[in-house]
Design a protein around this nucleic acid. Structure first.
Lengths: 138, 138
DNA sequence: CCTTTAATTCGGAATCATTCCGATTACTTT
DNA sequence: AAAGTAATCGGAATGATTCCGAATTAAAGG
């Protein structure tokens, strides 16, 4: 998702265009991988020293709820990244070293044969963890 | 996994047979679903009022590392359950209301067609979330 | 059974990420 | 430019988890 598409969503929901949100979006746009909340904090403090933790966490949570960010968890750490374009549902390999991702175009839900008709399905998660070629080399 | 199988593992690694560990294992054995750390605390305090948080968390972490417990995360909460018998690799539907599970016998790794030969795969996760028939009925 | 030794537990303090809150600042609209 | 409301700030509060030194307990050997 581009920064512009993110702003489209934010403005549609009457969120205001603020400097902190622009900094956050630009950071996620160029990062293009999963980053920890701590990495976000360190990075945005470059652009706005004195930004409040509250502001960071509040916006991360809101972006995540609006689908602008993707949130996951690895070894007890929260990770965030810009949501992929939403046109093709897919999943990810996630590098446990750098947070980089690789698309896995299949969705296991298509292969589930168990009868879940009496269950209300709210969501699912499929992720592969490991090390990417770059991090193996490095 | 049964309580006896859990003790086999613990004793094999020279962990001692203590009352607190027995209480924990019995609780997970009868719970047979994902429970939060808080639920564990409340439950084991019935059997041993005054048990230290340290003891609970230390053993949960150790059980999890030894493969006696399965650990996952939902809405920022850590969930634990007794590990299934390890003979057939499979995944789970998890009820977001009660933590109950239903086995999903397929593994999406079998269907992954993307070439990951240059990647080191460390693990994967596939979970389906929703509400089970019991919890839907209310 | 008694002793020894090391693992385990206890209790409470410390840590760490995250959230809350009241006061201030900054968008957006008019 | 002024008003109104959302957003931010700064720092305190929260809550889960971990750490630590002292006390207890399980296992092994005599």
């Amino acid at each position: 998702m581009s920064i512009d598409e993110a702003w489209d969503i934010l403005l549609k929901y009457d969120y205001k265009r603020t400097r902190n949100r622009e900094i956050l979006l630009q950071f996620f746009d160029q990062a293009d991988r999963y980053v920890t909340a701590m990495e976000v904090r360190v990075a945005v403090e470059q652009d706005n020293p004195g930004i409040s933790f509250d502001t960071i966490y509040r916006n991360l949570a809101m972006f995540s709820k609006l689908g602008i960010l993707d949130e996951t968890e690895l070894n007890g750490e929260r990770l965030f990244r810009m949501q992929c374009a939403t046109d093709h549902h897919h999943h990810h390999f996630i590098c446990t070293t750098c947070g980089g991702t690789k698309s896995i175009p299949i969705c296991p839900m298509d292969s589930v044969t168990v009868n879940l008709s009496e269950y209300e399905i709210e969501g699912h998660k499929f992720e592969i963890y490991g090390r990417c070629p770059n991090c193996i080399a490095g």
